[in-house]
C-alpha cells in the first residue's frame, strides 16, 4: 500500500515550495502561521494557494505564548483554522498542550532542555486528549556535534514514552527554507531510528495526520460543536 505522506509544520512560503513538496512526494503540507500574525489575511493567502495546486494545503497556527494564554488563544483559533500547534520547550507549556482538547500538535517539547520535556503523565494526557507529540527534523539538522547526540537521545526517549503509553507522535520538517524540506520516507526514517517500529514510523507521517485533518475539517463544518447540517 502506498502511503500519503504529510508534513504538518512548514514555517515559510515561497513560489517554489509547493513544487518542491510535490517533487519530494508529499501529499499535503501545513503552512504554519504565527499566532501574532493576521489570521484573516493568512486564510486569504492559503485560499489563493489552494486554487493553483492539487496538493492538500492545510491551515494551521503555531502558538508561541505563555502557558496561561495558550488555552484562550487555542479556543478562539479553533473555529478558524484546521490545526492548532503549540511551541513547546517549557514543561508547563508541554503539560498544558498535552492535556488540552483544543491543541492538535505539541511541537518540539525538548527544545532548549536537557530532558525530553515530556514525561509519562504528559504522554498519558496526550493519549487521552488526542494530542500528537512532534519530533522536529530541523532541530536535528541545526544541531552539531554533542548537541546532535543529545537531540537524538531526547527524541529516542520521546518515542519510547509514546510507545509505552500508546500516545501518537509525528515527525515534521519545521522547514524555514526550501532545502530543509524532506520527503515522507526521510521523515519516517528518523522515528524508525529513534526506536519506533517500521509500521508505526510510516503511519506516524501518513495515516495519523490524514485522519487528524479530516476530523478537524468535519468539525469546522459544524455550526456548533456536535451539531451537523442535514442535507
Amino acid at each position: 500500500m502506498e502511503h500519503r505522506f504529510y508534513d504538518l509544520n512548514v514555517a515559510f512560503y515561497n513560489e517554489h515550495l509547493l513544487e518542491r513538496a510535490e517533487y519530494l512526494g508529499l501529499s499535503g503540507i501545513c503552512i504554519v502561521a504565527r499566532s501574532t500574525d493576521n489570521i484573516d489575511e493568512y486564510l486569504e493567502k492559503i485560499k489563493k494557494i489552494r486554487e493553483g495546486t492539487k496538493m492538500d494545503v492545510v491551515t494551521g497556527v503555531l502558538i508561541e505564548e505563555k502557558p496561561n494564554k495558550i488555552l484562550g488563544l487555542a479556543k478562539t483559533l479553533r473555529r478558524k483554522v484546521e490545526l492548532i500547534l503549540v511551541s513547546g520547550g517549557d514543561y508547563e507549556t508541554n503539560r498544558m498542550a498535552c492535556s488540552s482538547d483544543y491543541v492538535d500538535i505539541l511541537c518540539h517539547p525538548e527544545k532548549g532542555r536537557k530532558d525530553p520535556g515530556v514525561d509519562h503523565i504528559c504522554c498519558r494526557e496526550a493519549k487521552e486528549h488526542n494530542t500528537i507529540i512532534e519530533l522536529n527534523f530541523r532541530e536535528l539538522i541545526s544541531a552539531i556535534g554533542m548537541e546532535r547526540i543529545r537531540e537524538l537521545n531526547k527524541m529516542k526517549e520521546i518515542v519510547r514514552l509514546c510507545n509505552k503509553t500508546k500516545a501518537k507522535f509525528i515527525v515534521n520538517s519545521g522547514a524555514k527554507n526550501i532545502f530543509e524540506l524532506r520527503s515522507g520516507r526521510e521523515l519516517s526514517s528518523l522515528s524508525f531510528c529513534s526506536g519506533a517500529s517500521m509500521q508505526d514510523a510510516l503511519i506516524a507521517n501518513s495515516e495519523i495526520p490524514e485522519k487528524l485533518i479530516s476530523i478537524n475539517r468535519e468539525k469546522l463544518k459544524q455550526p456548533i460543536k456536535g451539531v451537523e447540517y442535514e442535507r
Binding site: L140, I141, R185, M198
Partner: peptide, 12 residues
C-alpha cells in the same frame, strides 16, 4: 537501510 536514509537526509 533506514539508518543510511537518515544520514543522507541530514546533509544540508
Amino acid at each position: 537501510v533506514e539508518l543510511i536514509r537518515l544520514s543522507m537526509a541530514l546533509i544540508t
